[in-house]
Amino acid sequence: MEKILEIKNLIVSFKIREKKVKILRGVDLSIEKNEVVSLAGESGSGKTLTGLSVIKLLPKNAFFENGEIYIDGENILEFSEIEMEKIRGEKIGMIFQEPSSYLNPVYTVGNQVEEAIKGKINKKEKKEKVIQIFKEVGLKENVYFKYPHQLSGGMQQRVLISIALINNPYLLIADEVTTALDVTTAIQIIELLKNLINKFKLSVLFITHDISLAKIFSHKIAVMYSGEIVEIGPIQKIFENPLHPYTENLISCLPEKYKKGDKLKTIPGNIPDFENLPSGCSFHPRCYYKKEICLTNQPGKTQIEERFVRCFKYGNIVENRKS
């Protein structure tokens, strides 16, 4: 299969008070053609930063320290800003989490979708194209003349989706698309995305903190914990038999497994502070399966069938990385 996106050993650091703090600590991820990969994890685990790295739009005080990101076989980290401008929007579309703040309040939405169109076509054709895509995402024609604040959250998200899809990109990054929406709208948006993914033959990086959403349409899931992918594999297998203790905990927290009256389970503790990560495996303070080696060494990538997991439960592969 053709790889659309391949991230190799990506390390992204922040400069905080003159100190270098590693946030992404060697992320490996690849997306094949027509594949939907979910990136799940708690807030602050580096999911959004991974998404932004793919379009090379890091926050101001962040920088790439190491790694390669291949899009369509080309390493975009070597691209200039002008070359990146061509790739953004045309090859990669991105949908963000808070639709209202990602639309410019001073323009009509039709205007903003039109602006996203690459290539020179005249005004009439542009408008036709916009209305065409509005139909695809389930918006009425008259939305074209509305301002963002006149639309509901769900409609705004549909507008953002149409902006992301208007150039027929082959990679779509969806960053927590349903976070700002209520549950019923969220389901509608997810259903819409599912249809569009099939229709436009998209490869998708679906960033979410809700792994039950990931289950709806992804092929693969990558679970992230404090800047590392701790487990990656086909979604069905991971849900049936999670390998990493963190994944296991996450899945057991899903409410669908409980009977009425049961107390919901949570994972004790918080995600660690990036500035002083625990020694060894960063998950060990919260892990029920804790060995001595976990306290001192970082677990390396262990392959089990088609899955990769970083845990000493499945062998003693140690990560040789300067921390």
Binding site: L57, K86, R88, G89, E90, L103
Partner: peptide
Amino acid sequence: EEEYILASRALGLS
């Protein structure tokens, strides 16, 4: 710093 500026950068505008 507004998000729609980030969004328009993500669209590949100069």
